[in-house]
Every structure is written in C-alpha cells, then in structure tokens.
Amino acid sequence: MSALSAATAIATRELARFVTQRERFLAALVRPLVWLFIFAAGFRAALGLSIIAPYKTYISYETYILPGLCAMILLFSGMQSSLSLVHDRENGAMRLMLTAPLPRWFMLGAKLLAGALVGLLQVAAFLVIAALFGLRVPVLGYLTALPALLLSALMLGALGLLLSARIRQLENFAGVMNFVIFPMFFCSSALYPIWKMQESSPLLAKLCEINPFTHAVELIRFALYGQLNLAALGWTALAAVVFFATALWGYEPARTRSS
C-alpha cells in the first residue's frame, strides 16, 4: 500500500511536470508531424516500397513511417525523462527520492513507468492527429499497439535511466543525446525497411538489425495491425531488462570502508 502511494506520487509529479511544460508537449508533437507531413511528402517518390509484413498491399510512405515515428516520440520522451533525472540530481530532488524508505529499484522503476506513461500520452495525441489527416490503422490496432508501445517506452526510458546514471551534468547531456538519439533513429527500420539498407551497405543493415530501436519499431508496426512479432517482442523485452539492470547498477550507492 505504501509502495503504491509512493509510485502514484512519482507518476503524478511526472505528469504534473509534463502538463506544466506546454512547450515540451508541443515540441514532442511537432517533431513527428514534421517528419510525417513534410519529410514523408518529399521522400515518398524517392523511396519505392515493396509489400512487406505486416502490410498486405502497397502502402504509402506515410503509413510505413507511422510506427517509426511513434517509437521516435518514445525515444525522445525517454531521453527527456532521463534529462529530468539529471536535473533532479542537480537540484537535489533525487536525494529526496532515494532517501525514502523503499527499495532503490522500486523508486527508479516507478520513475521509469511514470516517464513511459508520459510518452504514451504523446503517442496517443500524435496518432489522433495522424488519424484526423486520414492516416489510420485498423481500430483494434490502436488497442493491440498499447502493450507494444508501453514495452518500447519502458525499454527506451530504461536506456535514458542508464544514461542519467552516468551523466553528472546537464551541460553534457546534449552531446550524449546526439550520440544516442540520431544513430539509434537513423540506423533502424523507422524510416526505411532494412532490405533497402542492405542494398547500400550490408554492414549498416546488420547494425540496423541489432539496434534495439529497430525491434521496438517492428513490435509497434506489427501490433498496430493486430499481429505479434515474437522476435521483436523478445529483443525489446531483453533490451529493457538489460538497460534497467545496468541502470540500477549505475545508481548503486558508494560504500564505506568495512573496517
């Protein structure tokens, strides 16, 4: 019961912070919409797509990148909440959380879940706007995508948590974001299918295949059409566990001498 009230408080604080930062919400929405309506419009002619699973017919380029953009929102959101952790560490709020009488893994897990929920809200808003512009998936797909989106949000949030354990200052964060977000996003199946990449560079295609972000994108892509991509589920879940466990290790407190 006490653990539940602590987790709820952490989630409420995260949501309240998100709601008060309207610019953050706006930026989170504008970014994928720019990709969807401007980038995709320009590139649809350049990138011919064959029929690949889970699609049953030829699809527009916008339809193809929709799951990738959902994952991109979660990637940015995960990094944003890791930024807030670095901020919390600098302003002392982290100490308050870590000196509460609850296990450290629980507190960080609650923080991770809260961040994931904020990410899901942003994806929901994005999908509503996309649907208003005629970019829709089967109605049931919105429901089946929910667990896939949650798991992806947790995996990417855990990556952010892992980074925040190592980054001590806000100033260093921008550099790390560039090193993480852009390679992860571009070296994935978010914007182009991996077979396309294979044509230009087998090495890059290999990198795309082992990128956990690719698996999150594919998990979401299949789930949006009511299908389960088991391999993507396994890799995404494994990455989530590894990232979270490593983050916990990073947050492990220093110890005093025993003698």
């Binding site: 019961m1 006490s2 602590a6 408080a9 952490i10 409420t12 604080r13 309240a16 308050l96 509460a100």
Partner: peptide
C-alpha cells in the same frame, strides 16, 4: 513550480502516508 501542499503531499506519499 508546484504548490506548498503538493510538495508536502509528494513527500508524505514517498514515506507511505495515506
């Protein structure tokens, strides 16, 4: 940027108070 009450409630919840 949160109220006095919200700050106090947050802490109370971290310490498991209903």
């Amino acid at each position: 940027d949160r109220s006095v009450r919200a700050n106090l409630r947050y802490f109370a919840a971290l310490h498991g108070l209903g």
